[in-house]
Nucleic acid binder design. Structure first.
Lengths: 218, 218
DNA sequence: GGAATCTTCACCCCTAGGGGTGGAACGTAC
DNA sequence: GTACGTTCCACCCCTAGGGGTGAAGATTCC
């Protein structure tokens, strides 16, 4: 039985992961981790889901890896580029798991990593199991559509989204187009307003680029 | 002593008006009016502030005029075009007052209208008294900048803002430019996010154009 | 096997939006 | 009288964003 803390800014993502792992609750105990205070119960693994976060977020991985309450950090992401994996490991992650794996494989991988066997599960499959959860899922958004929408709801331009998600600008535009069609909006502003009303607000606003005005939170 | 209900979707605007009229509290009693329920105390005058609302909003004026709790409806606006004034009166308003008037004149006008003397106070002055309040005032936004920002925070395009505020597209762009400079943002999305965090959320989302998806609120 | 779906990307076209410049009228403060 | 701020508008320029089309690979379902 290992304890796992789920790390992501979107509550629904965390909830989706938790429910995914619930089937293996005899092997995985999902626990809370207070990142703002360095007190409390330690966890065996901090599972960091990169949804709508900078891929290869070295600061986040580093921060988690150096948190005394966290024994091991595992990155959970769609992006399995070698450089991203290596960067995460270089920054202290003990493992890197593709979102393409099943819940059973995820559980096994977490156990393996916990036991000190560094493993990287990077399957090439893209739509193996529709598990987990993400904002807008109930409204029919695919994971990628949701992620791109979440990033524009953070205020990012298409170029910034492309960079952050490691996608081509053309892919970003494609996802924007399809996402807008699904939620029946025709402008970015309306999409952002929709997002805010539908769980696309991160719990913690991460500063991924310099704030021009230190006095305001945007 | 007449009772006046202040009508606007932005709490800070209502609060600003209330404080403006406070100086005349021996003549004006500001009261609450529950528009969703047709029960409660009636008011002598419903003072409808058009900030970030469609100018000449016939439906709103009509609705207020037909509310059995409201004796008289008065429109309070920067726009004093003849056609707007006539439209408001045709829709049941008993008066139309320019925002350019002083609090004293406003009070006198409300009393005159209440007593059955239909009056339209439309002064040409544009910056007589900096009274009242509006979202973003503390952050240095002028009234017009705030109004335009409020409208884009409702999801309107520049063309729609121009139409709603009875301004030229060029004026709208000018206000957008200056507003962005003041709040230190460089994109619409960031401006909208800023607006949401700074009181630019209307209490009641008014449907000013058809919703494409009846199942969602955007 | 074919259709549907998701992910990813390319390319074309056009305008909505944002940056700039300038100007006029009015009111207020020094 | 001058300077400044607010409101309002014009015009120039350019690209960010959004609409379209097409294609390929993988997986699942009928």
């Amino acid at each position: 039985m290992i304890s796992v803390a789920l790390i992501n800014d979107y509550e629904v993502v965390v909830r989706g992961l938790a429910s995914m792992l619930h089937a293996y609750s005899d092997r995985i105990e999902v626990v809370e981790l207070d990142l703002n205070r360095q007190v409390g119960n330690s966890v065996d693994v901090a599972l960091y889901d990169t949804f709508a976060s900078p891929q290869g977020d070295r600061d986040r991985v580093k921060s988690l890896a150096s948190n005394p309450l966290v024994a091991k950090v595992v990155v959970y992401s769609w992006n399995t580029d070698d450089d991203l994996v290596h960067a995460a490991l270089a920054n202290g992650a003990a493992g890197y798991i593709s979102k393409g794996v099943s819940a059973r494989e995820l559980t096994a991988a977490l156990e393996g990593i916990h036991e000190g066997v560094e493993e990287i599960y990077a399957t090439a499959s893209t739509a193996t199991i529709v598990a987990g959860d993400w904002p807008g899922r109930d409204e029919g958004l695919t994971q990628r559509e949701a992620e791109v929408l979440a990033l524009i709801t953070q205020g990012l331009s298409n170029d910034e989204v492309a960079e952050m998600a490691h996608l081509s600008i053309n892919s970003v535009k494609t996802y924007i187009r399809s996402a807008y069609r699904r939620i029946a909006v025709d402008s970015r502003t309306k999409a952002v307003l929709w997002g805010i009303e539908h769980g696309f607000r991160p719990d913690h606003t991460r500063v991924t680029h310099p704030e021009p005005d230190p006095g305001s939170r945007a």
